[in-house]
Amino acid sequence: MNRIEKTLAELKSKGEKALITFVTAGDPDLDTTEKLVLKMFESGSDIIEIGVPFSDPVAEGKVIQAASLRSLSHGTDLTGIFGMVEKLRKQTDKPLILMMYINTIFRFGTEKFFTLCREKGVDGVIVPDLPYEEREEIKPYAKSNGVLAISMVAPTSHQRIADIASEAEGFLYCVSSTGVTGTRSKFTTDFDEFFGEIKKSCKVPAMVGFGISNPEQAKKMSGYCDGIIVGSAVVKIVAEYGKNSADKVGEFVRSLKNAVL
């Protein structure tokens, strides 16, 4: 069983909500990212998404855009990120996901990429610019290497939800709002309707992300589904404290975990 499925099954049996957190690889450097991943797991993250920086991240808001560019300016690349994952795998058996743009997979070589995911211990990928219609671009390669390709639905998905949710593996990434990643002071989506539609056809846990930035929002949003995803709010702390951000990030993650328990 894939680590993502195993972790989510355990949480379900305990009746707990999942906390998924995100960090941009290589911001400010890969050694710090490695420490941050371990610290977040220690502080209550159940699954961690490692963001592979891309020069033109069209689904990201300002915070993750800036982190991606900082990381790239230090020369972060996929080879280095796989090296970091290899080191992490000697220290943790919790699920690791790479969140990245399709070009960074395609150009690296899709087959080679997923083979390395299996060898180094990456459990899943989230590719925000690869919609359902284009899923075959990676699906055969992911499947043959036991890597889960996480699907996304958005409030604008409407009639698409049934198709996407019924085929989802690992968990379904439910985008809270229109727009890009980044903190929001309020949400305008009708979540009862959105998750009502999702639950009709989704066989895997549903997680909500985009815009969740504090324990209050985390608590409220986790009420609608099986867990929450927090990205920009973590990256913001890393942007402020850099190499010394581990304790601050740990504290923040702990506060989120307590809120969703």
Partner: peptide, 25 residues
């Protein structure tokens, strides 16, 4: 490429956009 993929010119083209705008497309 998938049987659902649209707008191909040989291997080129397709619809590689975030889910949020897929319905609009």
């Amino acid at each position: 490429m998938s049987e659902t993929s649209k707008g191909r010119f040989d291997i080129f083209g397709g619809q590689y956009v975030p889910e949020t705008v897929m319905n609009a497309v």
